[in-house]
């Protein structure tokens, strides 16, 4: 494999991780969704590049799926939801940006440390992709635990999904099963989420999970 091909693949995967880091400090929901859309776009580009490298038509189809659903349809639906619920003006306080970013970088280091030594047999591109994909997954988890808002938790989950897609395409020749299931799960997730956001709104007049926590646990019925 030429140096150039490897460098492009590596750069795209690296940019996806950068997208995850950028998500960590967004304090507006619409901005957060925009970053997610950008990350999904990079994912589609990365998958398409892999398709080019591996000469696989299937991967081009996967890239098209990622482009249509992850980069366009889902962000669009989320944005519409956010505007409809009037959340786009709200500013979310993200606690301790510096600390979160440090934690994010620590997670990237951790995934390199864990994945690079064990993926020796997987080929250089897959090796980098898997390691970077793990850091996207871990940062997605970090986004989910540092946010109080139901909508931003969903964004965090979708970025975890992006990381998994990156890993799946890095694994050469992985059957389409996984890609279909990824698209499927994102779609189903969105349906469920849509219903939930409306219902939570209906019940509490807010989608701040703090309000949900008040009703936690064992109460009289």
């Amino acid at each position: 494999m030429s140096h150039f091909a490897f460098d492009v693949a590596h750069m795209l995967a690296g940019l996806i991780v950068l997208g995850s880091l950028t998500m960590l400090y967004q304090d507006r929901l619409t901005a957060l969704i925009n970053v997610l859309a950008g990350q999904s776009l990079l994912l589609a580009a990365s998958v398409a590049w892999q398709g080019h490298l591996q000469g696989s038509a299937e991967l081009y189809a996967t890239a098209a799926l990622a482009l249509v659903f992850k980069a366009i349809a889902i962000p669009w639906a989320l944005r519409a939801l956010v505007v409809r619920l009037g959340l786009h003006r709200e500013i979310e306080t993200v606690a301790g940006i510096g600390l979160t970013m440090l934690a994010g970088m620590g997670l990237i280091a951790l995934s390199m440390e864990v994945m690079l030594p064990v993926t020796g047999a997987a080929g250089p591109v897959a090796r980098q992709d898997i390691a970077l994909a793990l850091s996207v997954v871990l940062i997605g988890l970090l986004i989910m635990v540092t946010r109080r808002n139901a909508a931003s938790q969903v964004v965090g989950f979708l970025s975890i999904d992006n990381g998994i897609s990156l890993a799946a395409t890095g694994a050469r020749g992985m059957p389409l099963v996984v890609e279909i299931s990824v698209a499927f799960s994102v779609l189903v997730a969105c349906i469920v989420i849509g219903i939930f956001l409306f219902r939570i709104r209906e019940r509490f007049d807010t989608v701040d999970l703090g309000a949900l926590d008040a009703s936690r646990g064992e109460r009289a019925r």
Partner: peptide, 13 residues
């Protein structure tokens, strides 16, 4: 979902 996402990552590995 998070659990099942981690399981998928494991499946890929």
């Amino acid at each position: 979902s998070v659990g099942i996402a981690l399981a998928l990552f494991g499946t890929i590995l």
